[in-house]
Design a binder for these strands. Structure first.
Lengths: 344, 344
DNA sequence: TTGTAAGCGTTATCAA
DNA sequence: TTGATAACGCTTACAA
């Protein structure tokens, strides 16, 4: 015990238990053909020796690692963090393990992340940020790796796309603002230009026009609290100050609200109505009490993982024609009425 | 190309380039002895074939995977999320890759997480939450896996402990409250009972006593916004209402402040002074503008990773006696003066 | 149900 | 610098 071998292998366990290597392997493989007596015997020896299956070797021979890559930028952001939280949880429950790859949002770095995914023979990659090179995703696909895109605006062969329907949320927002008697609508967006974010803007404009209302659009920086402050400054110093602002995310809305209150001495919702998007925890904090649209994050995670497990079987029996098609899931972002819109 | 083999191996590349397998291996190994001509030749073939080194196989033979496990509960919490953010970033820059394991904070689930770390032959594990069984950490150690403990109160052989000095922060807080003319100090804590959190409480009491002040302690729930609200309710309905509260984390402080303002109509800092801990992003938002102590999170990450890389070499030439000792890093949490304390 | 043996894709050792 | 060969620890036909 003093001089224990660093790594104890299945062979060591087999020797100790007086059985064959394969018996040990089977004892550790769920659903393998092994007698209860054999299993307990092996387990006992394994316990005594401190044996742990080497997933590297297992993955090598099975050509499937059990690893799922999470490709994400700005993990510390509340919305992303909660997505990662639920994803890791459901992944673990399904017996998978999450690899977290931090990207700087550039498509380049996303591609680098997928390189890693391929290197580790990940079973799948879940992309929360950016959009990788088509060439690399093709390689992932060829390696039997499935790809899940969350709020990304592209469809890849053999992938699952998870989207939000921007239209209904926009219609609800316009309706709420109208009911509150607002006349001058605005949309506070970032300069990120992410398709899903641009869709929110476009949908809001469309729905406002349908209601006979004009929308002032202002765009700045990333989707952050600080951008919200700047956007507030820009919109609130305009000649025609808006009395209703739809912010592209809650983070932006929080920054906007703080600036409106503390710099412009405006009351929310009396002087200005605000709506956000995401339903991050802070939106529910009583300083903000922000009306917003909730992304069903936990649902995303649950459905993404169950899609993963369902498509697992196809792994071997690839039917190229069929697999060329991608799956798609579209969710509604439910409105969460709080106090940032009059009469909400 | 239609019928490309799912996985292209080093052998395939070697065949195509007309060289040996080992030449391919060397071409992909940084610092290996290979001529530039050979390298470009191999790389060309690899590119054409879409070859990617199999890290599973590489890890198997090198007995080192390049994986570092991050064991953490409540990832979506701002402080944890930012720690994970920096850790993953520095890990990646050092050529490692992070595996994220979500625990429910129980020591059991932390042990299960470390099991996974062993299964994947992780180079190291970084524990941000909970405290695993001594038995399992010993096994990690024997597998040559290093362990980094962040704000955990135990020292393991061959591990690095990262701690915060609670005393100086406490002294600073007491001084600030005194200078603000506060008479009735309180400490708002969670029921979590984590050693690092309890230390903050103990240190605050000690320093207050040294200054001749009494501290009312209230404890409730987890360290969350909601707990802060409850704690505020409890402390502010007391016969002797405190006029200065040190909150165990910023999250608690935010909840406390919101409740004090919106439910008790108290002004901060005029009626009550508040100090938090962590310096999460929200503490800087203008609704809170919270004076707090900043955990040097980025520094943690940088130092943790550089310790990891430095101790890498010892991997093979283990000198048991030497390695029994652990390293320890103690940081100061610098105060961030904002507006939640009078005269701050 | 169990054992035997042949890989899986690498890297490392040793000659050349 | 390059190439052959032996591990690395596991799973999985196939045979018993």
């Amino acid at each position: 015990m003093q001089n224990e071998k660093a790594m104890v292998s299945a062979q060591d366990v087999a020797d100790r238990a007086g059985v064959s290597r394969s018996a040990v392997s089977r004892a550790f493989t769920p659903g393998a053909s092994v007698s209860p007596a054999m299993r307990t015997r092996v387990m006992k020896a394994a316990e005594e020796l401190g044996y742990h299956v080497n997933h590297l070797a297992r993955g090598l021979v099975r050509n499937r690692s059990g690893i799922v890559c999470l490709v994400v930028s700005e993990i510390a952001t509340p919305y992303r963090a909660s997505l990662v939280r639920w994803l890791t949880q459901y992944l673990q429950e399904a017996g998978k393990i999450a690899m977290l790859i931090n990207t700087d949002r550039s498509d380049n770095s996303v591609s680098a992340a997928l390189q890693q995914a391929i290197n580790f023979r990940a079973d799948a990659s879940i992309i929360l940020s950016g959009m990788p090179d088509r060439n690399i995703t093709r390689q992932c696909y060829q390696h039997g790796q499935r790809i899940i895109l969350i709020n990304r605006d592209e469809d890849l062969p053999g992938s699952l796309s998870i989207h939000l329907d921007a239209q209904r949320a926009a219609a609800t927002a316009v309706m709420a603002f109208q009911r509150a008697g607002c006349r001058h609508l605005a949309f506070a967006n970032s300069l990120a230009g992410t398709p899903s974010l641009m869709k929110r803007e476009a949908a809001f404009i469309t729905e406002a026009e349908r209601a006979g209302l004009q929308v002032t659009v202002e765009r700045f920086g990333t989707t952050s609290y600080e951008s919200g402050q700047i956007l507030a400054h820009r919109l609130l110093t305009r000649h025609q100050r808006p009395d209703a602002v739809f912010c592209v995310t809650d983070l932006v809305a929080c920054g906007f609200m703080d600036e409106a209150r503390h710099r412009f001495a405006l009351r929310v919702p009396e002087d200005i109505c605000l709506i956000g998007y995401d339903n991050i925890a802070q939106a529910g904090w009583s300083s903000y009490n922000l009306t917003t649209f909730a992304q069903p994050v936990e649902q995303f995670a649950r459905d993404a993982v169950s899609w993963l497990m369902q498509t697992e079987k196809n792994e071997t029996g690839l039917t190229p024609q069929n697999d060329q098609q991608h799956d798609s899931l579209i969710y509604q972002a439910d409105v969460v009425w709080r106090g940032s819109v009059r009469g909400g």
